[in-house]
Design a protein around this nucleic acid. Structure first.
Ligand SMILES: [Zn+2]
Ligand SMILES: [Zn+2]
Ligand SMILES: [Zn+2]
Ligand SMILES: [Zn+2]
Lengths: 168, 168
DNA sequence: ATGATGAGTGTTATAATATAACACTCACTT
DNA sequence: AAGTGAGTGTTATATTATAACACTCATCAT
């Protein structure tokens, strides 16, 4: 039996992040057009701020960062934009951090494995098909109907492990 | 190849909950003695309150519930007890709910799959060895060092599905 | 054109969750 | 007797998130 190989969705250790951003924003714009939903200026701006890095970002950090450009911004401004972006699968909420991170697979199916680095705060998203398959089976055996999944691993990423071991 | 079968850790649909509670408290007391840590009256009481059901409980709900017996209780009282109980593996923090639930496998390894019912709020803990195995492999492939795992599935449990379909 | 509707936003207030900081007790050690 | 560390009491505050209501503007049916 052939399990289809998924394209790797891990950002390489060193990478052209401008490309990450422009791809994410392009994809978001296209998806919103196709779906007939509005990626308004506020929503676009919040998405862009989230994509400033691969780190998970807090809502109030976003609020602080958007204020220079939007003096009137209030918590509701941010939370509404976040709600929209999550609904559209353009970002993930990182439950174990109360924070948010851009989704690099927004065009495809969702609910991925998140590897969260406690050292550099980067979040790596992996589709982990074997895990998802085993999980689906386990859930079926429990007669459980799924609404949403959060699979979050905290620890130290490969890049940080390397950096730390280089120092010593 | 034989994968050892783990004892089922799912509370049966109808069950003797007093037994759940007394087993949990007995185990906790024994573990704390063995480990040389103190299950003080406050900690014991909080653990007991959490075990009042299989539902995830909020910290401030615990605070309200402990006040009749402990008028002086403050947020810190609860959060300190929760920190201790989590450290000792006697409860789990449910990240996606900011809530807490008793652990029914505190004597064994940790970080299990949590099935969280959005209808009745019950949390079922499953060891899901196949999932954990696939997950370990995936994490190894990513060169990631694990500190902690949160695997949380929200949806509707078997019991609620049955109840709802019986009504219609 | 008029009024109804719905999505998005502005604004104020407040709820819910969590931690910091410092003082005090008490058991145990030196 | 002084020193130490764990646990707790207490006050204050930080952080995260939502409720509620008003306003705008585009769309649509009458
Ligand atoms: Zn990037
Ligand atoms: Zn890292
Ligand atoms: Zn029970
Ligand atoms: Zn249920």
């Amino acid at each position: 039996m052939n399990i289809p190989v998924e394209p790797s969705q891990n950002p390489p250790l060193e990478h052209d992040h401008k490309k990450c951003v422009s791809e994410a924003l392009d994809t978001a714009e296209q998806l919103c057009v196709v779906r007939g939903v509005q990626l308004t200026p506020i929503r676009h701006q919040v998405l862009e701020l989230i994509w400033a890095s691969h780190k998970a970002v807090k809502a109030y950090e976003l609020l602080d960062r958007i204020k220079p450009q939007m003096d009137a911004a209030k918590p509701a401004t941010i939370y509404r934009a976040l709600d929209f972006l999550i609904e559209q699968g353009l970002i993930h909420r990182v439950e174990s951090l109360n924070a948010f991170v851009g989704c690099n697979c927004s065009a495809h199916q969702h609910e991925q494995l998140l590897l969260i680095c406690n050292n550099c705060q980067d979040v790596e998203e992996r589709s982990a098909p074997k895990v998802m398959q085993a999980l689906a089976l386990e859930i079926k055996q429990a007669d459980f109907i799924v609404h949403s999944k959060a699979i979050e691993i905290q620890g130290v990423c490969a890049k940080c492990t390397k950096t730390i071991s280089d120092q010593s």
